[in-house]
Write a protein that binds this DNA or RNA. Sequence first.
DNA 1: GTTCTAGAAC
DNA 2: GTTCTAGAAC
Length: 754
Amino acid sequence: MNPDGGGSSSSPPPPSASRGAGAEAKEEERGGKQVVVVLVGPPGSGKSTFADAVVAGSNAGRRWVRICQDTIGNGKAGTKIQCLKATSDALKEGKSVLIDRCNLEREQRADFVKLGSTLHVDVHAVALDLPAKVCISRAVSRKGHEGNLQGGKAALVVNRMLQKKETPLLTEGFSRIMSCNDDGDIKKAVDLYNALGPSDSLPSGIFCQKSKGPVQVGIMKFLKKGDTSTVEKSSGPKITLSETKPEQQKPLPKHEKVEEGMSCPMEIEKGLNDKNENEEHAKECDSDTAADFLQKFDNITYIRLVLVDLSEKSRILSLVKEKASKKSIDCSRFFTFVGDITQLHTKGGLRCSVIANAANWRLKPGGGGVNAAIFSAAGESLHHATKKCADALRPGTSVVVPLPSISPLHQREGVTHVIHVLGPNMNPMRPDYLKNDYIKGSKILHEAYNSLFENFASIVRGHMGKQNEKLGPEMSASGGTSPNDTKMKREDSHGSERMKKHKLLPPIMTVKQQHECTKANMPNYHDKSITSSAAPNQAREGDTKKSGVVASKTWGSWAQALYELAMHPEKYKNTDSIMETSDEFIVLKDLYPKAKRHVLVISRTDGLDSLADVKKEHLPLLRRMHSAGVKWAQKFLEEDASLVFRLGYHSVPSMRQLHLHIISQDFDSTSLKNKKHWNSFTTPFFRDSVDVIEEIEQHGSATASSDEKILAMELRCHRCRSAHPNIPKLKSHIANCKSSFPSHLLQKNRLTSS
DNA sequence: GTTCTAGAAC
DNA sequence: GTTCTAGAAC
């Protein structure tokens, strides 16, 4: 029978090379290959159900026993020692064991791993990674729980536990790790173990179940699409770096969200990989540099690295994968992907905004492999854009090329930047030929990856070259980034109409409508009287001049209110909503404040609707808007010193006309009603003004904007990051949460307080 | 039965 | 952006 039970992985079981002859003999004595399955999951994740289902449903002759700490002491709560003893006894009787305890921390499961290894038995981890809110709500509402953990107490416990969760790693000693993200995954995993006969073994390695889940599937969802079932023809391995936008986020307890990712083709190390013994060097370079890189971005930005290869059989891919797991790199932040790097979105379901190209030294489109494929997929515009940035590359260096929005690769796959990178050159026909100096080759390879990651970092965080801590003068240009080129495709709020190809025409008000607005004294956010009768979303012909095609958003009729105010503040001077007016901006009390204090600094520049429109020329304006915001925050602090303010923009605003939010972090407001409200101020969807300014200084555009998918993320406290099942519960939590703010908010004056 | 969310309409 | 409401979740 197939021990993989028709599951999602097609990898054949590896030879049990790690086991000595003695172990095999012991197995024979016991009459099979036993296994210890360590379940990993918080209360409410369904560990007991899982274990019971495996025990009850075993249909292949394997004997299973569930060991549950809650019941081990004659039905009463027991100790870990008792569990270990029971495990040992069961194994000696020839049974396989399911450890039914939370085991969320490495230390908690270490003894079981050790026991397995002492007895020469494989130890698997099955992580039940359901969304926190699912676990919480199940744990809270269950009745008659064996450990009596239910009701309100359960929510607290689950939250506390999830903060400490450590993802199981192969380095801990597990031979196989499987993670399940929804009930479907769990069912599959149960089936897999049920079908496991006494002599069968499951393939070792990490198996992320990536099925489509209901809501918070996040990265796992699109990883699923990387399943080896859609493998294409191989032309050699490649690593690709790309900025990855997952379809949806699954917040992880510690380093929360992953948002920006980069994929790179393995061809960077082409020369080195010609010889098998040098694969070691290559994988070291990949995973070491990746690990360092990810560590730098831990907790700061949602970064992901994706290693791409056309072939599932790639030896490099599996070596890197293995190495990465040993390096304790979070498998959701650095993972391998089988597929075509030029079709990551359309074929692979990955949203990679940045891809790395294993270029040639002349940065020519030709050649073969991934370079030719990327140039061909990206069209002429990549060639032109590349020429603008650099003429040639030295081995070990890389260059960022913003991909013009007319490029098919930009339009179809959402790629905004290509980073050309040149690895070591082992080809005697080329300059800088290294002969057979593989040590030097590895060094250059390392440099190449460093350069690549640095450049990727600069795209994500706007850190080109040296970090500039203050809002000082402009930094030097970043390789000719044109803001228009970096605009992302977006859909309108109904998701029905693709974005227009041209810049939009601001609506023209009819005389009658102007009259109505004046009469009302304030533009009504949802009153269609403000809407132009002249089709507000029509394209303006003359605006296509320079870069031609510009992705832009269509604005609904209700989205015009701020524009109207900014253009004609004098009409609304009688209201007390406008707090300040200047030539450049107005300051307005938000009509539906989401906190005790919530004001908007609205730019008065016509045509500047959102961050996507902001270019270097707007920097002085942005700095002055920021200063005005700080000034108002300070004014509010004089009235209430307990407030804390954050200044920032929405990545994708709902209302047109660029506006900066100044919002107190109490979020104490009846107008804060839903998940979108909450997440728009407490996830990376909210772009701190200081970061936006820095990005534009260094990049010429706001590059790290997050997309609207993030607004559907689960609800987490903005201070302690605990998860909550719904808005009312979240609000009652934040009313009392006294935790300090996450560390990244405490830096760079992202928070303003007294 | 009540609470809460999410999608449509504006 | 908000409001409204069907229907899911409790």
